[in-house]
């Protein structure tokens, strides 16, 4: 069983601040992390390896610094890590990114055939959830998104049975390998890195691929050229014209404040009392 896990290094969006005057992102000091959604996929891949044997290759496209994310994956137990990095990829949108990653996976396949590709459900910086489905389409693999459980993997017959989160329930799907899987958050908990793997990660000779080694055939399909979507404007959300009416009473006692608030609320929205009465036990 050969599993490729696609991961991305992202800025920890919880710690991003916007400069109040210039409206630009203040990148300084924002730590880079492995996209949290990718870790569920990586852990699921490692579990399959534990159960069925085989190897796990992690793949990332990004700037040279993304090496850190790949070493992290090695420390969790991945066997091999490949960083696809080239200035020619700069400005790639999801369509161009899926083209580049699919090319790289084809290169990986030249050594050992790939049975499964895992990708994160989405990233926390782009939030698009499009690259996984894009890679599947380009590699003509079956697509299994929002998977909450892998019920069975039949390596002999090359089939996989999974539980997929649908809007109002769970679909149980069975399909043939090779396929691309994105894993739902909370499906598993990432293991701790062992001491051995941490040492291995530190010394691991990372494979770094440029556009040629990643097998990019058509340069018009990567970077800005290969990206149909164009960011035409970046701006800060406009402040609302009307600020909150701050409830104020002479005593400023909690009880007086809330009574005043309720009086205003039910004067402004008389229907609300009806809605509450309808819902309340």
């Amino acid at each position: 069983m050969h599993i490729v896990v696609c991961i991305k290094q992202v800025p920890d969006s919880a710690q991003i601040r916007v400069h109040p005057v210039t409206n630009t992102i203040m990148r300084q000091g924002v730590p880079a992390i492995v996209n949290p959604y990718d870790l569920y996929s990586l852990e699921e891949a490692l579990r399959l390896k534990d159960r069925y044997g085989g190897r796990v290759t992690v793949l990332s496209m990004g700037p040279p610094q993304a090496e850190t994310a790949l070493r992290k994956a090695i420390s969790f137990g991945a066997d091999e890590a490949i960083l696809v990095t080239d200035r020619a990829f700069a400005g790639s949108d999801t369509l161009a990114t899926s083209y580049a990653l699919a090319s790289a996976i084809r290169q990986i396949e030249k050594d050992i055939p790939v049975d499964l590709v895992f990708a994160g459900k989405q990233t926390i910086d782009g939030d698009t959830a499009q690259v996984g489905p894009g890679i599947a389409k380009r590699l003509d693999m079956r697509l299994l998104t929002y998977i909450s459980k892998i019920r069975e993997l039949d390596a002999l017959h090359g089939t996989i049975t999974v539980e997929r989160r649908a809007e109002g329930g769970v679909q149980v799907l069975k399909t043939k390998l090779p396929c691309l899987v994105t894993v739902l958050e909370g499906t598993n908990e990432m293991r701790f890195a062992t001491m051995n793997n941490m040492f291995r990660a530190a010394r691991y000779p990372l494979k770094v691929w440029n556009k040629e080694s990643a097998g990019i055939e058509d340069l018009t399909k990567i970077g800005l050229k290969g990206s149909p979507t164009i960011v035409s404007k970046v701006f800060a959300p406009s402040p609302k014209a009307v600020k909150a009416e701050i409830i104020d009473t002479e005593s400023n006692q909690p009880k007086d404040l809330v009574v005043t608030l309720l009086a205003k609320l039910f004067t402004k929205k008389p229907d609300l009392a009806h809605d509450i009465a309808k819902n309340a036990p």
């Binding site: 999801t94 499009q130 990206s227």
Partner: peptide, 22 residues
């Protein structure tokens, strides 16, 4: 939705066109 995002990503890649999410 889970269905819509699954479909949209595949359709956009098949048609080789741009898709803006959320």
């Amino acid at each position: 939705t889970t269905l819509g995002r699954d479909l949209a990503g595949s359709v956009a890649t098949t048609l080789k066109t741009g898709l803006t999410a959320d």
